[in-house]
Nucleic acid binder design. Sequence first.
DNA 1: AATCCGGGGTA
DNA 2: TACCCAGGATT
Length: 336
Amino acid sequence: MPRNASTTKSDPVLPHPDFSRLSAIQDALLAWFGECGRNLPWRHTRDPWAILVSEVMLQQIQVARAIPFYEAFLDRFPTIQSLADAPLADAIRVWGDLGRYRRIVHLHRTARIIVEVHGGLVPDDEAVLRSLPGIGPYTAGAVACFAYGHDTGFIDTNMRRVLHRVFLGADVPAPMVRDRELQTLAIAAVPSGRGWAWNQGLMDLGARVCTARKPACDQCPLGPHCTARPTIQGALDAAPRKSAGATPAYDSTNRYFRGRILAELRAIPPVPPENGITMPDLGQRVRPGFEPTDLPWLQEIVSGLAKDGLAAVAEDRPRYDAVDTDRPSTLRIKLP
DNA sequence: AATCCGGGGTA
DNA sequence: TACCCAGGATT
């Protein structure tokens, strides 16, 4: 594969990927996947909408955790139209406490764009997919392959590790391998006509055999063909330690309180006369011992949520407040 | 290039 | 505790 010849001067020169046994590797992985592949809900459908929902949910969220959320979300929003028609607040409620809440805002926007611009059909072109909110190189490739059967290549954290080890070896430092180069490799490795099973199999192998910490090389169907196998243990032992300082307790982080605040906002009934919650009330609900001096801290986090499109801030005025100038305006927070 | 985003599982 | 997980947007 003439990959190095096409790289620019600024790119590091990588060892030539070993494709000499590509055919045997393809056969071995496809056979293993047929026998040992995971049984996952989104593998029983080719509905592009269901595939898109699954891929967005699975971005940095573990498979086992995503499954119940996937079922519940599609039960409530079985079609693109149903999500596009729904208020964002409904979508946020159905997303529940899955986390990564900006993604439901992006998915909601994407559903509306697909309805308004693409005739309600999920695009099958990766470049078009990448132009949609919340869809990057991985998700675009996954939708093109898993929904439309395109023989395309893409990389997630599992596939990156497997392709790196099998074709480049353990001696190539991970930082040297750029995403674009590895994606080029991924595309070149896809067996013609078998892209769906190949890419699903790569992910399963990375999740169950070729794991980050303890790869089970003796049980790996690609073991005899793997470039990294002879040196993988030494490379893992020599892996540099990353951490520099103590990580703060999670329940003191911005992230934790974003989740807590959104849980409170979701719990507010979506029907009148409920109209959000005041800042002091919100503070007392999300943080024990909340005091008025903590209001700026809370305001900061709420502003961040509002900037992400996850919260709306409205002034709650009495009906004839034009004459009531002494009354301080009260901010009420709710879902957008 | 670095940081942020949630939360749960694991060694 | 620190790392890991079917990434992407923002600055």
